[in-house]
Design a protein around this nucleic acid. Structure first.
Lengths: 296, 296
DNA sequence: AAATTGTTTTTTATCGATTAAAATGCAGTT
DNA sequence: AACTGCATTTTAATCGATAAAAAACAATTT
């Protein structure tokens, strides 16, 4: 059956929201909550009913008030708020990157299903979606093969990434000065500088900033195939960083400085400089990734 | 439950094979048949059992002989030899391209399942795989949206295609003269010339040749992401040509000539000429596709 | 001993059912 | 006019079961 992870996540979000409100404040309307939390009104009503049952919300109809401080506000554990599909992704990436699965390993649906505690259909669905990441391959009627998080994977990934990024960076540099992208870029530049100032404490935050920086560049001239390729990059990097903490602070500091140079080049709108800065950054990112791949 | 389409296709293939053998000849070994037909020995044994039941094969163990001419050899209809997943793909492409579905149309899993006569899981699986083609989009917990076979789809597709193809063509032109790709290219060039000579009768055969030509170019310097993008191209063109017969002969003739120029350029190993011929061909292919898209 | 057939085990493809979430619709309320 | 209450309908996420196909193993024959 369908799990109620959506409800549980919505409930947790509502709790966070309520905690930020003063004692006795009026609860926003159902429609407002629905928009805020990002679920249907049906689910919002279920959440409100729960909050009321827990004594966190009182009153009914238009007269609902918040009484947060008086209760302990038990949240649902994080694991229960994640849809099966997302859990499978997480566990699979972990198996692949952390346990360093060997290239050529056969992937067994039933086996994974048991290991991850889901039905085989869930695994199949995941594998089918995951196929496009280029890390697994299907042999019809005979299962999947893990091709390995190898050197050639990283090289092929970066060959494409470089083509796409140079194309986007060039297009961005050619945008008229009044285009909104320049403001966004400036804002990101500031965020980079701030992060650099507090790098000792906040170097973990770079991963997210990195992804936003590159997405801004590519989304100025949108192309669905490029966007979809960035999904691959994002996921690979997300999990890669999660399990490879080696030299993280230094790596990130270097990358921030490269981003700043890259941004400067973009502001200068000098295509040759842009290309140079872009390739320089990508090549150091490539080196980082290469260091954690396994031969071939 | 699993359908026996693999068995039925194998059975048909075996019939074709047997028909080519002389009366009373010995049947090849199970392993040989398995390799020849491309299915497991388990399935081969089932096929042999069926052939025996139909009187087409006699004897047992190592002493099996063929008696083809004496029987009518009923084949399974084509539709029963195609796996559910492949049928769904075919029917979906048909719905999309021939019935010219509107951009923004909501895709309903249960609805499609009923229309195509399969279980919803099959539809889900297909949609998940098909996602990467950039023609549909998922909204979690709320189904899929068909984005439309639009002008912008074709433009974005060809922007990437051009980047990839120029990259591959350049790399091919730089291959040493003794590389095997030159022989393959020469063979393909011959096939093109032959096809051109009999263009009136055989213009339908171009679609396959086209796909092989471009795959040869890209596979000389393999990159899994580029290969996977070619799958998209192949599928789109396959179905597009199947439902858009307008000017087919002329279009194909033009394309053949462009391929020949392109091949000449490659043989000359002059990078500038290669790039020119490549871009010229792609731009006319783009025009063709654009003509059958629907606004935006 | 190499190749071949016979038998058993493992794994995939596919179905159908079940439940949660979302959408819809409408009447009543402030 | 926007909101709630409530019932109903539609749709997506997930499970578990089963036949087909593949793979592994064992027994035979040349």
């Amino acid at each position: 059956m369908k799990t109620d992870t959506v409800f549980k996540r919505a409930y947790n979000d509502a709790l966070d929201m309520v905690a930020r409100m003063p004692e006795g404040a009026a609860l926003p309307s159902e429609n407002a909550l629905s928009a805020e939390i990002g679920v249907s009104r049906t689910t919002v009503r279920k959440v409100i009913a729960s909050l009321k049952a827990g004594g966190i919300v009182a009153g009914r109809g238009r007269e609902r008030t918040v009484h947060s401080s008086s209760h302990d506000m038990q949240r649902f554990p994080r694991s229960e708020t994640i849809a099966m599909a997302a859990q499978v992704e997480e566990r699979f990436m972990e198996w692949m990157l952390r346990d360093n699965a060997r290239p050529g390993t056969a992937i067994n649906e039933l086996d994974l299903a048991r290991k991850f505690g889901v039905a085989t259909t869930g695994i199949r669905e995941f594998l089918n979606r995951f196929q496009r990441f280029g890390l697994i391959e299907k042999r019809p009627n005979a299962g999947w093969v893990f091709k390995g998080f190898t050197t050639s994977f990283a090289l092929e990934l970066f060959e494409i990434r470089e083509m796409f990024e140079v194309r986007s960076a060039r297009a961005l540099a050619a945008m008229p000065p009044e285009a909104p992208c320049w403001h966004q870029l400036e804002a990101l530049r500031r965020e980079h500088m701030e992060l650099l100032e507090h790098i000792e404490a906040r170097y973990h935050d770079f991963s997210d900033l990195d992804s936003r920086f590159h997405r801004l560049i590519s989304q100025t001239t949108p192309n669905r195939f490029i966007d979809s390729f960035y999904d691959i990059i994002t996921v690979i990097f997300h999990f890669h960083y999660q399990w490879n903490k080696h030299d993280e602070r230094q790596r990130n500091e270097v990358a921030i400085r490269e981003h700043l140079t890259y941004a400067e080049a973009l502001f200068s709108r000098d295509v040759a400089m842009v290309e140079l800065a872009c390739r320089a950054h990508l090549s150091s990112a490539k080196e980082t990734l290469l260091r954690s791949t396994s031969g071939h």
